[in-house]
């Protein structure tokens, strides 16, 4: 199992919690007040509640069900039902490796997370969920080109076989759009989109619009019946 991109760093400000999927693992990703990131199995050791529904208190994540607090090391440090009790150090969440690299959050469920290199000046555009198979989403993305907002176009550039990364480049090679694909389930896929080079605000908005157009196309061609599309954060 490799490291997966689970979101854009800008979409997870401090004190926020989100749900992600890496392979079969349901994961809670959150940031403490200081900005410190954690990624855990999305299941509270107490009674199995999804931790992604919890809330951040300082540098701890509190479970929504009974408010148990877990520090960024995953160890339970407070049980509200027993305020005077020092919780035994054995109560802990399953902790995964997460890094924030070039504005992308990468999680690995086995071993240390290692992100992919991106062009140095990459700026986050958005994450967008496609409610269709990964293949349909990928085909639609590959078959399209991105307008750069000033008359030019970026076209698809080397796609390695089986790769979950697509790169679009302008004719002069100066501007690029990187799409990192994450497959949370068989019937949906998330595209994390970044832009590198010289982009105006309108250009960035154009990239976002382009992703919506491609999504409509992908969902129309090979679709699942209930496509309640949801944008990330």
């Amino acid at each position: 199992m490799t490291t997966e991109p689970v979101g854009l760093s800008v979409n997870l400000p401090s004190q926020r919690v989100m749900q992600a999927r890496v392979g079969d693992a349901d994961i809670a990703v959150w940031r403490g007040v200081s900005g410190k990131l954690s990624a855990w199995l999305n299941r509270c050791p107490h009674r199995g509640m999804r931790l992604s529904h919890g809330f951040v208190r300082g540098e701890s994540l509190a479970c929504l069900y009974h408010g148990w607090h877990y520090g960024s090391d995953g160890v339970c440090n407070y049980i509200p039902a027993h305020p005077d009790l020092e919780p035994p150090g054995t109560i802990q969440t399953t902790v995964f490796s997460i890094i924030d690299q070039d504005g992308v959050l990468w999680v690995s469920v086995d071993g240390a997370a290692g992100g992919q290199d991106l062009p140095g000046d990459s700026k986050p555009v958005r994450s967008i969920t496609f409610s269709c198979s990964a293949k349909a989403a990928k085909d639609a993305l590959i078959g399209s080109s991105v307008a750069d907002g000033s008359g030019g176009e970026l076209s698809i550039h080397d796609i390695a076989e089986g790769s979950n990364r697509l790169e679009f480049k302008s004719a002069n090679g100066l501007n690029s759009v990187v799409v990192l694909l994450q497959q949370p389930s068989d019937q949906s896929m998330i595209a994390h989109i970044l832009a590198a080079g010289d982009w105006s605000v309108d250009g960035m908005i154009g990239i976002s619009r382009w992703s919506e157009t491609v999504r409509r196309q992908a969902e129309r061609t090979k679709n699942v019946p209930n496509s309640d599309c949801q944008d990330e954060l």
Partner: peptide, 8 residues
């Protein structure tokens, strides 16, 4: 909202 989010 709790019951539908307990695993398993």
């Amino acid at each position: 909202s709790i019951l539908e989010n307990q695993i398993p």
